[in-house]
Amino acid sequence: MPSETPQAEVGPTGCPHRSGPHSAKGSLEKGSPEDKEAKEPLWIRPDAPSRCTWQLGRPASESPHHHTAPAKSPKILPDILKKIGDTPMVRINKIGKKFGLKCELLAKCEFFNAGGSVKDRISLRMIEDAERDGTLKPGDTIIEPTSGNTGIGLALAAAVRGYRCIIVMPEKMSSEKVDVLRALGAEIVRTPTNARFDSPESHVGVAWRLKNEIPNSHILDQYRNASNPLAHYDTTADEILQQCDGKLDMLVASVGTGGTITGIARKLKEKCPGCRIIGVDPEGSILAEPEELNQTEQTTYEVEGIGYDFIPTVLDRTVVDKWFKSNDEEAFTFARMLIAQEGLLCGGSAGSTVAVAVKAAQELQEGQRCVVILPDSVRNYMTKFLSDRWMLQKGFLKEEDLTEKKPWWWHLRVQELGLSAPLTVLPTITCGHTIEILREKGFDQAPVVDEAGVILGMVTLGNMLSSLLAGKVQPSDQVGKVIYKQFKQIRLTDTLGRLSHILEMDHFALVV
């Protein structure tokens, strides 16, 4: 994948999101292997301009796509893939009243899908469409860049269908997702969380590099694949309309690839034109409109599966009536509230959605109805927002919020430890010299600072030695090549209790 991002070429006709291997024109390309080798690009942008032909009021008969309808489940399912879809609609009884809503608040519980998330729908649909058009064949390999849930859905379907599955996901995604993927037989590649989507090191860039190296491999490409919004247009939206008897006044959905909100909203605009569509985008993402909503100094966020630093091709923002931004604290607070007060075992993005819903639905009156999409299960986040310690460490809970008995030293300040200034190293000294210094002084790690004293990161003896043994660096290389740029900081005025929580999850903390 090139470091400079080429513009994806656009073909003359058809839909841009065809499933299957992508040609340089962004659509299915038939021909000899030699032709494909000559024409197939190194990668295709996940934010390529959409060429979708959908228009409100256009006859369904003019759609270029294969459409399906929700099917009634048999008493005995032939395999677990038949437990994807037909998820329950559940009334939220307490939270709406707590925040003064007059309307009825309903939750579409997508964590009841077989793999635990709304992404099971698009995973199965992308595979079925690729099999139907002859792209996927027995023994082929599926590769997908994902925040985890699409990966789980694909790995689940691949396990049943017999495909090899490789999932490329950023490091910030939970260990629970990784464990589930491994249990399903998927191979996992992790990428830096802070890598831009168009960087060769991003999950998108690495996935395309693997595709170019592995024979008979395919990126189904949830960011561009029409099967993504079509899955929701054909099934999720129809289920909502049936469950609500066609009567709903507002739908609120958090947005990642945009397939969920695009597919549902398009069908609702056709069948229930008075329904307002509300999009939820986390602070630090750029999906919301108008652009002024996205202006923030924050560039990272903890909530998973929603928000991006690019506009995915499948996201149709014209069908969203209003956007709201959400933050991590309210997302996790509301997710825990949904679990504790409503018994809905949902993930953090569901918290984002409901946090926005109780604001947006203030305009609705008694007798009206708001539906929220709860995308995934708490299963993926047992060591994250479900953990009091994690919430404390991230600053989303305060010590006084917890009532468990603490040891005698818990409320003492870090400054009472009488710490001395640490050994520091410059980023320009060599790895070999740094190892000598650390061994001589008896230290395992040291902060790396520039000549102005600005902290650049941390270097550890173990990481340097393993990097040297693996051949990633040489003793003569500058130590700046092996620094940890993500590390926890703590102030002298913070409590030892807070430091204790940090050290339970990290090997060190830097006192500043």
Rank of each mutant, 00 (worst) to 15 (best):
P2R: 11
P2Y: 07
T5G: 08
P6Q: 15
E9L: 01
G11Q: 01
T13R: 01
C15Y: 09
C15W: 09
P16G: 10
P16V: 01
H17F: 07
R18F: 07
S19T: 01
S19I: 07
G20V: 15
P21V: 05
P21R: 06
P21N: 11
S23W: 13
A24W: 05
S27P: 01
E29W: 13
G31V: 13
S32N: 01
K36S: 01
K36D: 01
A38F: 15
A38V: 13
A38S: 14
E40M: 01
E40F: 13
L42R: 14
I44Q: 12
R45C: 01
R45M: 08
P46T: 01
D47C: 01
P49S: 12
R51L: 04
W54Q: 11
P59V: 01
P59Y: 01
E62W: 05
H67D: 01
A69R: 14
P70R: 08
P74W: 04
K75F: 04
P78L: 10
D86L: 05
P88I: 01
R91F: 08
K94L: 11
I95W: 01
G96C: 13
K98W: 10
F99D: 01
F99R: 07
G100F: 10
L101V: 01
K102L: 07
C103G: 10
L105K: 04
E110R: 01
E110F: 04
F112A: 04
K119I: 04
R121S: 01
R121Y: 05
I122T: 06
I122V: 04
S123G: 05
I127G: 01
E128M: 14
R132D: 15
T135G: 01
L136N: 11
G139F: 10
G139H: 11
D140P: 01
I142S: 01
I143S: 04
E144M: 01
T146N: 08
T146M: 04
N149T: 01
T150P: 04
T150G: 01
I152T: 11
G153T: 01
A155D: 04
A155M: 09
L156H: 06
A158V: 15
A159L: 06
A159R: 14
V160L: 11
V160C: 15
V160K: 01
V168I: 09
K172W: 01
K172L: 01
M173E: 01
M173P: 04
M173A: 05
S174N: 04
S174G: 05
S174K: 01
S175R: 06
S175E: 11
E176Q: 11
K177G: 03
D179R: 06
V180S: 09
L184I: 13
V189F: 01
V189S: 07
R190D: 01
A195V: 12
A195P: 01
R196C: 08
R196E: 01
P200V: 09
V204H: 08
A207T: 08
K211M: 12
N212T: 11
E213G: 12
E213S: 06
P215S: 09
N216P: 06
S217R: 01
H218Y: 08
H218S: 01
H218L: 08
D221W: 01
Q222M: 04
Y223V: 01
R224G: 10
N225I: 06
N225S: 08
P229H: 01
L230N: 13
L230H: 15
A231R: 03
A231W: 01
Y233A: 01
D234L: 12
T236C: 05
A237Y: 06
L241W: 10
L241F: 09
Q243V: 07
Q243W: 06
D245V: 08
K247R: 10
K247S: 01
K247G: 08
D249N: 01
M250S: 03
S254E: 01
S254Q: 14
V255K: 01
V255L: 07
G256C: 01
G258R: 01
G259F: 01
G259V: 03
T260L: 05
I261E: 05
T262L: 01
G263I: 01
I264V: 12
A265V: 11
R266Y: 09
K269L: 05
C272K: 01
C272I: 07
P273D: 14
